[in-house]
Design a protein around this nucleic acid. Structure first.
Length: 415
RNA sequence: GGAGGGAUUCCCGAGUGGCCAAAGGGAGCAGACUGUAAAUCUGCCGGCCUUGCGCCUGCGGUGGUUCGAAUCCACCUCCCUCCA
């Protein structure tokens, strides 16, 4: 699609879709009417090297803007990342080392273009300008905002109320992020809904520097895979690496598919809305069909899992993942790509130990507990004896829990 | 600078000399039920092995008292509160 082919009003319509906040439409329309590509900034904190589905909500919006002909700055907050965004935090984060930040930034690069158009993405790091600020520059920046306004932030206010520490440098975080907008002459900054505060500071600070304030767009924050439906509403923490409730973009296909299949039904609809390419009408229809019993919820979920696995891997990979899933979990058959481990032992080898060595359990004690709990099968039969052993010279198929399999060959250590 | 309070296992949080690998809750894992859903119920929930009522590690750090310390003492580190 040629750049700027759509009239501003139509663009605005597209931009508005699926957003939470848009500050504000009038200003944005004005910017669009000037007919030059907007500078759109989205910052990514390099603390989490794995991009996950939660990031893709805003990334899809970025892609939309790109397709409308605008310039998207994928800003890696390598400088601010060393401070740590206090958003949603109840305590101070430890700063990252330079090496960690660099490594994480690299990982971002390779994953981001699964969604973004590389030709219309400008990759920047905010250390480019932030590291160069002098003491006087920082003072000037800090003068743009007041402590009272900073304390309007719920997370700061709460920490203050609960007598938890707040380090001064955390106050600086939103200001540095705002300075990014100054440095880039940003027209539009986007982010998750939880970023609203930081984005608004950007507007104010830009004014302070005599610049036209940026517009702001926020998208919904995606709940993690552990979210639950409570009284018809989805309740749960946002998807994040540190909470472990995420689906990473580079999760292997089977894992991605499996993780998506195990989210609760209510959450599936949320994922449909925020992640699927299906339009609102199609989702509505599907939802009605499930509610009416015409479509099994599992099949609706499988469709979603397939779509997303296909997007981040390939059609073949998605198909294979679906097949494997059905084979293991619906037909209760063994997958055909079970990893084989050769364990050396002249004497009968304890099953618990073998499980630990083959990586099926984190420790021998853990494996022993799993055995006693009835979670271990050898050659299709449940083994509940914690003293069970495997004979040298034989190969066993061991299953731990629902989805951990390994073929274990006990090899006598001759020669 | 002064006075006081606190630091417990992944998280929250009980525990004031032996019965403490440490209550309770959450998270996690396994089992039942299912659609590998969710909810619910049950069990587990530091590590090691020669699997014994075994050994090691463990209650901010370092020493000490004691037959025995998460619990008592000393010093140290960090956090909080009030005063200045």
């Amino acid at each position: 699609m040629p750049p700027m082919s759509l009239p501003p009003e139509r663009q605005l319509e597209t931009i508005r879709r699926g957003t939470v906040d848009l500050i504000n439409e009038r200003e944005l329309l004005e910017k669009l009417r000037r007919g030059r590509p907007l500078v759109v900034k989205v910052g990514f904190d390099p603390t989490a090297p794995d991009l996950h589905l939660g990031h893709t909500v805003v990334m899809r919006k970025m892609r939309q803007l790109q397709d409308l002909g605008h310039t998207v700055v994928f800003l890696i907050g390598d400088f601010t990342g060393r401070i740590g965004d206090p958003t949603g935090r109840t305590r101070t984060r430890p700063p990252l080392s330079e090496e960690e930040v660099l490594h994480n930034a690299e990982t971002y690069k390779t994953q981001a273009f699964k969604i973004l158009d590389p030709a219309r993405t400008v990759l920047r790091r905010n250390s480019e300008w932030l590291a160069a600020l002098s003491g006087a520059d920082v003072v000037r920046l800090a003068a743009q905002y007041t402590v009272a306004r900073i304390l309007e932030r719920e997370d700061f206010a709460r920490r203050l109320r609960e007598n938890r520490p707040i380090s001064i440098h955390e106050f600086l975080y939103p200001l540095f992020q705002a300075y990014d907008s100054v440095a880039l002459r940003c027209d539009l900054e986007m982010g998750g809904q939880d970023q609203l505060f930081n984005l608004v500071v950007g507007r104010e600070v830009m004014k302070g520097y005599g610049l036209e304030p940026q517009c702001i767009l926020t998208v919904p924050v995606l709940e993690g895979t552990d979210a639950r439906e409570v009284e018809g509403r989805i309740a749960g923490e946002k998807m994040s690496k540190s909470l472990g409730n995420y689906v990473a973009l580079d999760d292997p296909p089977e894992e991605m598919y499996g993780k998506l299949m195990s989210v609760c039904d209510g959450l599936m609809w949320r994922y449909y809305e925020l992640l699927s390419a299906l339009d609102a009408g199609a989702i509505r229809t599907l939802r009605d069909d499930v509610a009416a019993g015409r479509v099994h919820p599992r099949d609706a979920k499988a469709r979603l899992a397939f779509e997303l696995t296909e997007r981040f891997h390939s059609t073949e990979a998605a198909r294979a993942a679906a097949e494997r899933f059905d084979r293991v979990h619906r037909s209760h058959e063994t997958p055909d790509d079970v990893e084989e481990h050769r364990l050396l032992s002249a004497a009968p080898l304890r099953l618990s130990r073998a499980c630990a060595q083959a990586g099926l359990a984190s420790s021998g004690s853990e494996a022993q507990r799993l055995i006693v709990a009835g979670g271990v099968e050898v050659d299709g039969r449940r083994v509940a004896d914690k003293d069970a052993t495997l004979e040298p010279g034989r190969t066993y198929l061991v299953r731990v829990g629902k989805r951990r399999f390994a073929r274990i060959a006990v090899v006598p250590p001759e020669t």
